[in-house]
Design a binder for these strands. Sequence first.
DNA 1: ACAGACCCTGATCGATTGATCAAGACGGGC
DNA 2: GCCCGTCTTGATCAATCGATCAGGGTCTGT
Lengths: 206, 206
Amino acid sequence: MTAAKSKSVTPIASQEARERIIAAALRAFATAGFEGASTRQIATEAGVAQSLLLYHFGSKDALWRAVMDKLFEGVSVRMAEALRQTRGGSVKDQLLAMIRGFIAICAEDADIHRIMTIEGRQPSERLKWLVDRHLRVGHRQACDLIARGQKDGSVRQGDPTLLYYSFIAIAGTAFSLAPEIALLTPDKEVVSAGAIESLIEALIFL
Amino acid sequence: MTAAKSKSVTPIASQEARERIIAAALRAFATAGFEGASTRQIATEAGVAQSLLLYHFGSKDALWRAVMDKLFEGVSVRMAEALRQTRGGSVKDQLLAMIRGFIAICAEDADIHRIMTIEGRQPSERLKWLVDRHLRVGHRQACDLIARGQKDGSVRQGDPTLLYYSFIAIAGTAFSLAPEIALLTPDKEVVSAGAIESLIEALIFL
DNA sequence: ACAGACCCTGATCGATTGATCAAGACGGGC
DNA sequence: GCCCGTCTTGATCAATCGATCAGGGTCTGT
């Protein structure tokens, strides 16, 4: 960890501050949206000065992009692993692994689905950046898989994109709207990942 | 229109301004969230001065509540009509009417689902107000219907609330994330209400 | 014609926003 | 010891925020 990185002169002192800022910014952006989140509130939650966050990232927009890169780095790693472990399996097994992985991601951190649905609702430069840099690949992979499943008869017919967004909507909404659901059913325990999975299975597969 | 309303002294001059303000505020709240939307931007879009909007509604919070009342007034009218027309029918027919009604509402105005998912993601006084005043009744009605359908064997087993939010998620997401989907599939036409309906049918019914 | 209620606007308030800047703290290389 | 690049802070900027206020316009009732 303290080993010198060949030619790099930077001793990599406090990358921890960057990570704390990104974590706080993720929560703020996910709950209040881009304009609703303030850099001062993010800095306070991260325990640093507000100017430090502009020193590291340059602007609020650049901070948002850094948060998204960090977010989808983790997501793509998990999804790639799920697909790798079922490489030789059937299309249905690969799709199931993808679905289980996405549910697990949403269960661990509901902010992921929150932040994705915040930006997708109006055209903007941020949405364009997000789609081109992070969303396009996953959508393409999933839709290819769905189309192959439709060909071999294991997946329900219909627009692959609609099926893709439907399963994302079910898995994500159950967790991202947890505060609302908790107010509606205060005595009920948290929603279970297994129930969501069987629901999505019934929706996707024949 | 100019007819005197019995004892009421107010001539009800410009209620049109109120409605323009509410319409503009709905769009603003639905896309930018409560904190992200500014009263000046809303006033500009409505073609009035910013102070007029505080004259009519008192505060930004009160304007938000007025927008919600207007929004759910229309929704509850449509849902009540859908249920009334299938009063004598089977549970499945009543649920189908409810689903079709909700899809039609989302197709007409995607802002409804947008605004519902914006507030449900973090605990707040606004969410508490929204749940108690507008969401609780619809949730109760739908879940009762789902439970009855589960008893007579026409509806899939599972937590009624999860089934309820799943069908809302599918119907709403397809329209509220339309800008994102359009960027992903630029050549494709808009998503069809019929495709969504058959998808939800497969999810809900046995 | 006058008075009063309602509707609406422009100016302005203090607070907060994202961004900039000067200055200090810290540590490694000479 | 001294210097220099990195990291961090506090002060401060113009712009914008929600909210308040005084005042004018318009109509109705008398």
